[in-house]
Nucleic acid binder design. Structure first.
Length: 245
DNA sequence: CTAAATGTTAAGCC
DNA sequence: GGGCTTAACATTTA
């Protein structure tokens, strides 16, 4: 469940651990200094795009669930091997599986430009237009996966946003009229928050208009499925109602 | 059972 | 080194 909204859900789900002291940390992560976690207080929990940030007084643990990562809260079943398991008082635990975990010592404000995170209050249309203006030849399908421009946006969000604002995925950023580009940016934020609500309600799939679909819900055109962009990601679009700029 | 998937990074090659 | 492409990783679902 790795797009930005799912990470915000994760953050909210574990927010009650904020301020608690870690009694013990273990896991199979190579090069992870589990010992440094022992006895430290979880000072804060933040997110940046798809990153979950567990903040401690002297360092930060950055967790990225990648494609298949998962977590458990207060569920210490032994059927899976955690990459990181944190034990708190009263038997409370947080476990993370099949994910990327990195220990950061730099200041987060130096590392992250919070205004690039689609779900952060600091995100602005204006700054995003400015960032996009440096990539006129980039396609819309790539822009919406670029974590320096739309941090948190993933392949589902990309597909759904492009369909909703009627932009063909191969459109060049520099060719998209400014009002249309602004609409795309606003919809990325809007859809991300809807994604979060729908995922929490367990109805995300039900609201897909184009992702994994065969027929355009607007005009009945057969949906095209192609592997597009620098990362050759699954891209669904309606060749009739999504305009190529 | 096999293939593919919400993602990223390291390695490899010109 | 730079810039691009490929491989690798890990798990669940169709």
């Amino acid at each position: 469940m790795p797009e930005g909204p799912s990470i915000v859900i994760l953050k909210e789900a574990i927010d009650s651990f904020r301020g608690k002291k870690i009694l013990e940390a273990d896991g199979y992560g190579k090069g992870l200094a589990y010992g440094r976690l022992h006895g430290t207080k979880l000072k804060d929990i933040k997110t940046f795009g798809k990153h979950l940030l567990l903040c401690f007084p002297d360092f930060t643990i950055r967790i990225h669930l990648l494609m298949f990562g998962s977590y458990r809260i207060n569920n210490d079943k032994k059927d899976r091997n955690p990459k990181l398991r944190l034990r708190f008082a009263d038997g409370q635990t947080l476990s993370f599986y099949a994910c990327s975990i990195v220990m950061l010592t730099q200041s987060l404000d130096d590392l992250y430009d919070w205004s690039a995170d689609v779900m952060n209050p600091a995100f602005t249309v204006k700054k995003t237009i400015e960032r996009l203006s440096h990539h006129p030849k980039m396609t819309a399908t790539d822009a919406l996966l670029d974590q320096t421009i739309f941090a948190g946006s993933g392949n589902i969000i990309k597909n759904e946003v492009l369909f909703r604002v009627k932009i063909h995925p191969k459109s060049k950023i520099g060719s998209i009229p400014l009002p249309v580009l602004r609409k795309m940016i606003k919809e990325t934020v809007h859809y991300s928050f809807q994604f979060k609500e729908w995922r929490e309600a367990g109805t995300l799939r039900k609201h897909w208009l184009v992702y994994t679909k065969k027929i355009c819900p607007r005009d009945g055109t057969k949906i095209k499925k192609h592997y597009l962009g620098v990362a050759s990601r699954r891209t669904f679009y309606c060749p009739t109602c999504q305009e190529l700029y």
